[in-house]
Design a protein around this nucleic acid. Structure first.
Lengths: 155, 155
DNA sequence: GACTCTAAGTTCCTTGAGGGAACTGACGCT
DNA sequence: AGCGTCAGTTCCCTCAAGGAACTTAGAGTC
């Protein structure tokens, strides 16, 4: 639907939304991440239209987030795997999960749990500063124009 | 456009997407966050259709992410401010910025910089575990069904 | 060899959401 | 009275999502 081209905006949020902002894209990414890699499986597990799924997979592949890997050439059979770029995008999903669990899960509790390899505990992600390691949230930062800014407030 | 109702899925990613997954929503949130709070300012700064802006503001207000605050009743003049729920959602934007800056910024560099209050340095967010504080990324976790899961792989 | 099954898409049609421009209502200013 | 501002609403058009059916190409079975 998105006739406005977010990809050209001088804003990393808009540009990120351009890549995975379409509905379904994060869910496709999530499923590939947990091991659902093939067209048929993705279609069934998500209940997505085959047409839209094909479009999204092509887009995500074009963007370098997924890689289409043929495990059979005749007939053409493929699975989709995360690239490095795509794997880092899954970090974003963890943050969405943390927020969704906190604000939208309701009585039933979180639908999925994440066990951290390092400590073996069930936890969620928190944000910290890449420089000092202290917590870094939206309320803890000042926003300044950077080198790639076209104009004030556009990025 | 989204005829599929993500809000009812047993998946925190889908439910989060239901709240801010529509195009423009994250950008509206971002602008409110940096102080662009009024209809006219939002419309002009984003170049969004007035119709769509009105729809999004109503939706985000209904979801408890924004609060419509009238600063004049006659005539009706309002500004939109972030609720606690909405402020925490801005953390998600910081992660989108970090990814977008890293993978999409190109030659020009990041369009916006974020200075951390605690250390005064320009940095970006990194993800850490709420339990042990060590880095926690998509590659560092196991995914397990939780109490609110309807079925395997649905959340 | 014909029949069925599977996987990965593609094609076609309908509906509804996004975009844009114009309009509205209520006031303030001069 | 006339213009400007703000916060929307209304109208129309186009294009994307949803869904079902179709296609292609081989594998397995009788």
């Amino acid at each position: 639907m998105q006739r406005t081209d977010f990809g050209e905006m001088a804003c990393s949020i808009a540009r990120t939304m351009d890549v995975i902002g379409e509905p379904w894209s994060p869910l496709i990414l999530r499923n590939v991440y947990i091991g659902i890699r093939r067209f048929e499986q993705l279609q069934e597990s998500l209940g997505i239209s085959r047409k839209v799924l094909a479009e999204r997979l092509r887009w995500l592949t074009d963007q370098g987030v997924l890689e289409r890997r043929e495990y059979s050439t005749r007939p053409s059979r493929a699975e989709y795997v995360l690239t490095g770029k795509g794997t880092e995008l899954c970090d974003l999903l963890l943050v969405m999960v943390a927020w969704g669990d906190r604000w939208l899960a309701g009585e039933a509790g979180p639908p999925v749990l994440y066990r951290h390899h390092a400590c073996g505990q069930i936890g969620h992600v928190e944000l910290s500063c890449s420089v000092c390691g202290e917590p870094m949230r939206a309320t803890d930062v000042d926003v300044l124009p950077g080198p790639g800014s076209a104009e004030m407030y556009s990025g």
